[in-house]
Design a protein around this nucleic acid. Structure first.
Lengths: 266, 266
DNA sequence: TGGCGTCCGTGATACAAATCACGATATGGA
DNA sequence: TCCATATCGTGATTTGTATCACGGACGCCA
């Protein structure tokens, strides 16, 4: 199995060993991203955390038998939009960017996946093509399960199938949420405020202030809210000037949550 | 069970008989939308079409035992965004608009549901709140299954759970597709072209021409592509002037599909 | 150490599209 | 049939923000 892809004007080549593939950029004169099969792991720290927590013991064993773990460096690509679904990736560590892009190179990021999430699930269960591209933005370790084995497993384990349905429901929920920030805003400022508040929802609040970690470039933020890099820069500067937030490296402190919320109300 | 909601400045009251509820607008001085339990139907024409086609016979029986059918007039609301999920609606006939709206009344339509689709599925399986509002735009008949009974059914019927997962995957796919039209376009014209082509994908092509039925107001189209009513009117007029399409009442003929596609690309 | 690539900051400019405002048509219920 | 309401069509105006252009800061590697 070997094929080529184009994305953002760069040429990509698909390299696979076993079933878990990884893409590398042929234009960059570097060694191909290493793909290292670590083990048939039973002990991923997130194995039981979300998708298959508390499954009956036989199911867990059956699952681990078909799972293979691999690690991916920053910049690696788990799968590409439009490519027939090979299977699912259960993210154990690191972070992965899920995006789609148009013919002219514009990119829309739908989601930054955290450890514990399952990537490629919708396409795998429906048997269609991956609808998004998954790029590693922080060195990641992931468990791969091929489509056939995964579907067979689900057929045998009704409980797991229900879990999968739930995970899909949550994924959909997140997508709708993302659509709201992009589609219901009158201005870019509103979009950015919505984005920051949603991002902050995962962090604890301490008397009106929230410290959040935002390891994204302005460019990437722009791609998440559907605006340009420059406006993101300007808006962040603006928010800082208005004492709404504070930036120290990759950590961002929301100083005035209420004011941010009032931006999205009008 | 009785409660009130606010949406777009109007007051709604929730009326339920059995488990299938319907909302009506108290400001309109009309009789409440009728909710008429027709039968515990085994014979919905779409029962077997999508979600539960070819299930083993006992499963079908179990399903029909917990299903109740009702009909809803135009303007009725099956469920409202933010309301705890009561169950799923399997649409037998008619069409339903799925939307979300912001505090200031702006509305984003995510999808127009056709017969055979299952509404409220994501929220029901995850046990959260409906993330969208479902309004009937063409008189509809739908089968309702309450959350508890539906989940129990899924636990007992692994095959059905898998089917549900697939349906959810397709729903997600459609959502991503919608995001692309809204998020990846540079201009409103591009969005409209994307929307029309996607809509036309369900209709047969006859030597470059496609006749599609588009029973949506300009306002609604605007809410689907995230722009204003006026620009939709202007753009449609523009497209007609350029011989890209032709409008006769609620049917729309795409005369030059290639040209529409070229709008998207550049 | 010097070069190179990526990322951030900021000005000037142009243009698309939201908004406002109004009239013309359709539509549907009493 | 007639009136009320929804929907459409179009002009004038204004504003937000994409885009272009450039310079500076920083990290990385030869």
């Amino acid at each position: 199995m070997q094929s080529e892809w184009r994305r953002n004007g760069k040429r990509f080549q698909f390299v696979t060993r076993g079933d878990a593939g990884v893409f590398h950029d042929n234009n960059a004169m570097r060694a191909p991203y290493g793909l290292e099969i670590i083990e048939n792991c039973l002990s991923c720290p997130h194995r039981e955390e979300r998708l298959f927590c508390n499954l009956p013991e036989p199911s867990v064993k059956a699952l681990s038998a078909i799972t293979s773990s691999a690690s991916y460096p920053k910049g690696a690509t788990l799968f590409v939009e439009g490519q027939p679904a090979r299977g699912v990736f259960i993210l154990c560590s690191g972070r992965v960017k899920l995006s789609t892009s148009s013919a002219d190179g514009k990119t829309l990021i739908l989601r930054i996946s955290e450890p514990g999430e399952v990537l490629g699930l919708p396409a795998t269960v429906t048997g269609s093509c991956y609808e998004l591209t998954a790029d590693v933005i922080e060195p990641a370790q992931a468990n791969f399960i091929s489509r056939n084995e995964f579907l067979n497993f689900l057929k045998e384990n009704g409980e797991a199938a229900l879990r999968v349905a739930q995970q899909l429901g949550e994924t959909y929920h997140a997508a709708v949420s993302e659509m709201r920030t992009i589609g219901l805003s009158h201005s870019a400022g509103e979009k950015l405020a919505r984005f920051l508040l949603e991002w902050a929802a995962n962090y604890p609040e301490d008397k009106g202030q929230i410290r959040i970690k935002l390891t994204l470039t302005h460019e990437e933020i722009a791609q998440m809210i559907g605006s340009s890099r420059e406006t993101v820069t300007r808006l962040l500067a603006d928010f800082r000037k208005k004492q709404l937030l504070q930036v120290m490296g990759s950590t961002l402190v929301i100083k005035n949550k209420a004011a941010l919320e009032s931006i999205i109300s009008g």
